[in-house]
Design a protein around this nucleic acid. Structure first.
Lengths: 199, 199
DNA sequence: CTTGTGCTTTACACTGCGTCAAGCACCATA
DNA sequence: TATGGTGCTTGACGCAGTGTAAAGCACAAG
């Protein structure tokens, strides 16, 4: 069903199941089994169905659970408190690498699941819309301080920043090419400064 | 099994199955059913097993099939024939958008399947290694003509170019934000020129 | 007219998903 | 101390999709 977004049962049990799901998605990927989730959470398989309806309901709840768990408000405030354009971009890339470290395994599963379940796809795209907004605000901040190169419109600059900071770029550099997080932050910051900021 | 990389049966049937698989992966994603592949290819479900061993064997064969079908040699020659650094990058981004248009749906499924099947993951990473080599050659060409900014090492520049040109960036811009291919090429070229080339 | 190849047909075991119904433990409250 | 509700368990079942096995059929080559 997965219409049942309302919560059932003990919230403690619920969030324990979600935490276990997060872990399991991280190292099993899309081949996540509900029986395994239940076993690791120390509940019966049916408890999972009682709480989340079905497999996609569980993943959908996981998206919301990540929102609450991560709570990016404070981190974003720190990014926006940057004084220079370079500092802003560097802080953004630093937060970006932390964000994807936590979220990337789930992101990959969700993007793959968009074909099957419309609600799941919509939930994920919503989160990404928020992300776009965050990056758009950064570009606006740069423009307000006359640090955005005149070559770019606000729209193009924020779209590019959003897209280039997406998880594939991060994953290829840090996981496939074995860059450190610092190396990622430094190189991306340089790339973005040179292309987006006034020289 | 999927050890059976050797070909079985009529090559025409084989490539017909692969073509159908490619199509189906493109619009069904990872929820591809072998019975559907068989039906669309006009063969029995068992014929698919005879040819490819199992589901992952089919996907593995698809990777090789894409290599042969795409045949990027000529396109790459055209990219490298560019006279200026800007032209080189623009031609690369133009080819990039064509490449991902064809390959992206399969890429997404394969990246998700890496968890399940080691051979599949290895095959895909091999292809991406080739891609890295291609971009490294471009950076080398820029360096040879003194057009690469001194701010970058060859390694960092080619890794960044590779990663930024990866499919997520392309997909977010063209599919989620509805950029045209031309817009993608133009914006990415500008971004890369400003950050990689000598000013 | 035999043999091998390429494929079909039917059948079956297995796994994971989703559902159902009964029941149990542990509260509250009357 | 009985009553009812909540949160979960237990065991069973139907279903879909994967993968395997065995028999058979059409057709071509010797």
């Amino acid at each position: 069903m997965s219409i049942d977004a309302g919560s059932y049962g003990d919230p403690e049990t619920r969030s324990r199941i979600l935490a276990v799901t997060w872990d399991l998605v991280a190292d099993r990927g899309s081949s996540l089994k509900l029986s395994e989730v239940a076993a690791r959470a120390g509940v019966s398989r049916q408890a999972v169905y009682l709480h989340f309806g079905d497999r996609n309901g569980l993943l959908l709840a996981l998206v919301h659970h990540m929102d609450e768990t991560l709570d990016l408000g404070e981190s974003l405030a720190h990014v926006h408190a940057a004084s220079t354009g370079r500092d802003l971009l560097e802080r953004a890339m630093r937060l970006n690498t932390e964000f994807w470290t936590a979220v990337q395994p789930v992101a990959q599963v969700l993007e793959a699941a968009q074909h099957d379940d419309e609600a799941l796809g919509a939930a994920w795209r919503d989160r990404m819309k928020l992300r776009q907004g965050v990056f758009a605000a950064m570009i606006q901040q740069l423009a307000d301080h006359d640090q955005l190169s005149a070559q770019w419109t606000l729209e193009d600059a924020s779209a590019l920043l959003y897209a280039v900071a997406h998880f594939d770029t991060w994953r290829e550099l840090t996981h496939q090419l074995h860059w450190t997080d610092d190396h990622y932050v430094e190189a991306m910051t340089r790339l973005l400064c040179r292309s987006l900021l006034t020289s």
